[in-house]
Nucleic acid binder design. Structure first.
Lengths: 209, 209
DNA sequence: GTCTATATCCAGATAGAC
DNA sequence: GTCTATCTGGATATAGAC
């Protein structure tokens, strides 16, 4: 579309164009298979601009990472402020994660797949970041007030959110071919209720055999 | 140790030295932050040998990936041949995954963290591979014969193994600081029984303990 | 088959005009 | 601040002796 070349209809800020282009490329090809030239081309800016704004490819990835981590933190904090039970909060987080996977797929993919330590060598793993700690806190509060079974926090948190995260991976990898929100109700029922049919004697025989 | 230079005490085959060195480097720094020279140096072979045997860095990674995927498949097949209930098979897989994470950490890390599509562009995602399909089959058999609650296979499989995989990630990232096998009993109890305190808790307690 | 030395290529980074 | 043209380093890959 050469007729738009010099005056864009929507004069999106330059930083934003760069980050959007980078996100798309990083997700599709992986950080190391994207060159600064690729980003420059896709964002319709010059190489110089990228170095001026972000200091290089790594700087772009870093800005992207912190920006998205921040958005995730806000999402979690919104859920906290919702005045739900803690189980309700967990469910709302699961619901939102499923929704985001469909509507803002690239963001979820970047945060989930990207091996941030490859381009942020000094950075701690994502799961030490605030929003992930908060998720563990929610579970802990739920245990403390009796909503959730008592037990090791790592185990409970992993059991609550592990299935969700697994399904997101399977969806992003193309194995699950229906939108995730369709699975929401059945998933949370399965998470909280357990997997074994409630027929005591039957269960005993089958499990212990 | 220059006195060992020309005759190794343990004349480990050359391919194996290359693969072992590559595994270690890939896991520590990531595929793209490792050069063929790094592998060559660490394995004490020449660059030429690496190109002769594997055709380059990508070839090394490919060989490694298929080799380890194959080992995983054998592990799953061993479990299948064990004549356990299907729930028992799931538990055994969880147990083995936890054990491997401690004793063969690099292998687990490579299979779990490595973004294989970055260096195997034409390859399908790992979770389409045979051993992962078999895990879904085990769950399906368990549902068919009444051991496991009826429901969507993606949800059930993700619920059964999602917590396990999540905990392995947390362990590899250094957040969990105890060996995973210590969590095994409590984890499988949590997986199968669910997370919400039951009113007729007599039943489940008896069954599971 | 294994090695060393070398060629080729391309990504990251910069210089300097505008 | 933005751009183009250029430099440089380092990685992949190969050539050719042994």
């Amino acid at each position: 579309m050469p007729y738009l070349k010099d005056k864009e209809l929507v004069p999106e800020p330059l930083d934003c164009r760069i980050l959007t282009a980078a996100l798309n490329l990083f997700v599709r090809r992986g950080f190391h298979n994207v060159s600064v030239h690729d980003i420059q081309r896709k964002a319709n800016v010059s190489i110089g601009s990228i170095y001026n704004h972000f200091g290089g490819k790594e700087g772009v990835a870093r800005a992207l990472y912190y920006h998205l981590l921040n958005e995730f933190e806000e999402m979690i904090d919104d859920v906290i402020s919702m005045e739900l039970t803690n189980v309700g909060r967990c469910n709302e987080i699961i619901r939102l994660l499923f929704e985001y996977t469909e509507s803002r797929r690239e963001i979820v993919e970047f945060m989930l797949h990207a091996k941030h330590r490859e381009f942020l060598p000094e950075e701690k793993p994502a799961c030490t970041a605030a929003p992930f700690r908060t998720m563990r806190d929610i579970v802990e509060w739920g245990v403390d007030n009796g909503e959730i079974c008592r037990g090791d926090n790592w185990i409970i948190t992993s059991s609550v959110f592990g299935g969700t995260i697994r399904m997101i991976h399977l969806r992003l990898d193309g194995l699950i071919d229906r939108p995730l929100p369709e699975f929401y109700n059945e998933l949370i029922e399965t998470v909280w209720r357990g997997l074994i049919p409630e027929q005591p004697s039957e269960v005993l025989r089958v499990v212990r055999e």
